[in-house]
Every structure is written in C-alpha cells, then in structure tokens.
Amino acid sequence: EDDHHMEFCRVCKDGGELLCCDTCPSSYHIHCLNPPLPEIPNGEWLCPRCTCP
C-alpha cells in the first residue's frame, strides 16, 4: 500500500500508534490531540489543521 502519511506525531515528533488524517499527510497520537481522544475513532477522521475554519 502506498501510504503518504507522516511516520511520526505532528505534536511530539515521536512514532508509535498514530491516528492519520483522511485529507492530509498529518499523523497524531490520540493523547497529543487537544482535547485528547479516549480511543482511535471509527470511520473518517480529520485532523485539527483540516477542521479549522
């Protein structure tokens, strides 16, 4: 699979289990988001950068 997502968290710059945005290459740990997510959501997810007006 050709995955163009970042291999590190945009916030802390560390790797591991990352949540990938469905519209851009950004990846995040769920605990690095503000507010943090309790678990990885099902379905499409947009990062804070893509949901800002």
Rank of each mutant, 00 (worst) to 15 (best):
I30W: 06
I30H: 09
I40L: 12
F8W: 11
E1S: 03
P25N: 05
Y28Q: 02
E17F: 04
G43T: 13
T23N: 14
V11Y: 05
G15C: 03
D22E: 11
W45N: 04
C12R: 00
W45I: 03
E39N: 13
W45V: 04
L46Q: 12
P38H: 12
E39F: 11
C50L: 01
Y28E: 02
H4D: 15
G43R: 11
E44A: 10
S27C: 12
T51R: 10
K13W: 08
L18T: 05
P35A: 05
H29P: 01
H29F: 00
V11A: 05
C24G: 00
I30Y: 09
C32Y: 01
F8A: 09
C20K: 14
N34K: 14
T51C: 08
E39W: 05
L19P: 04
Y28R: 04
V11F: 05
C24F: 00
L46I: 12
D2A: 14
P48K: 04
T51A: 12
H4N: 15
I40Y: 13
H4G: 05
D2M: 15
C9Q: 02
T51W: 09
H5P: 09
C9H: 01
Y28C: 02
P48A: 08
N42E: 13
N34S: 13
C24L: 01
H4A: 08
H4Y: 14
P48L: 02
T23Q: 10
P36M: 06
C12P: 00
D3C: 15
N42L: 10
E1V: 11
N34F: 08
G16I: 01
C50D: 02
G16N: 07
S26V: 08
P41T: 09
D22L: 10
E44L: 12
C47L: 02
P35Q: 06
I30T: 11
D2C: 04
N34E: 08
H31N: 14
C24I: 02
C9S: 01
Y28G: 03
L37I: 11
Y28H: 03
T51Y: 07
G16V: 01
D2E: 15
W45R: 04
C21V: 00
E1M: 15
I40P: 14
C47N: 03
G43W: 03
C52N: 08
I30P: 13
W45H: 03
L18N: 04
L46G: 08
T51V: 11
K13P: 00
V11G: 08
L37M: 09
D3Q: 15
T23R: 13
R49V: 12
C24K: 02
M6W: 06
C20S: 14
L18Q: 04
I30F: 11
P48E: 11
F8Q: 07
D3K: 15
E44I: 09
C20L: 13
C12N: 02
S27Q: 10
P41A: 08
P41C: 08
C20M: 13
S27P: 03
C32L: 00
L19K: 11
C21F: 00
I40W: 11
E17L: 03
C32I: 00
M6A: 13
I40K: 14
C24Q: 00
P38Y: 07
K13C: 08
P35Y: 05
E17Q: 08
K13I: 04
C50R: 00
N42I: 09
M6G: 11
S26K: 05
V11R: 12
D2Q: 15
C47E: 03
E7C: 08
P36G: 06
E39Q: 11
C50I: 00
L33Y: 01
T23C: 10
P41F: 11
I30G: 09
G16S: 05
H29T: 00
L37R: 06
E1K: 03
L46R: 12
C21R: 01
L33I: 10
C9K: 03
F8T: 09
M6S: 08
E44Y: 09
P25C: 10
L19Y: 06
Y28N: 03
E17K: 14
D3W: 15
R49K: 13
H4L: 08
G16H: 01
I30Q: 08
D22F: 12
C47Q: 02
P35E: 10
C20E: 15
E1Q: 04
E44P: 14
H31Q: 11
M6V: 11
G16M: 03
Y28L: 02
T23W: 07
E1R: 02
C47D: 02
V11E: 11
E39P: 08
H4S: 04
G15D: 06
L33H: 02
C21D: 01
E17R: 09
C52T: 15
K13Q: 12
E44H: 11
G15V: 09
F8G: 14
P48V: 03
E17Y: 02
H31S: 07
P38V: 09
E39A: 12
C12D: 01
K13T: 08
D3R: 14
C50T: 01
E7S: 05
Y28D: 04
R49H: 13
L18P: 00
R10C: 12
N42A: 13
C9I: 01
C47M: 02
C50K: 03
I40N: 10
T51M: 09
D14S: 13
G15Y: 06
N34I: 10
W45P: 03
F8Y: 10
P35N: 05
E17G: 05
C20G: 14
C24D: 01
E7L: 09
W45A: 03
E39M: 09
E7N: 02
D22I: 04
P53H: 15
D14G: 15
D2T: 15
M6N: 11
C32F: 00
S27F: 07
C47R: 02
C20T: 15
P38A: 12
L46K: 14
P41S: 06
H29L: 00
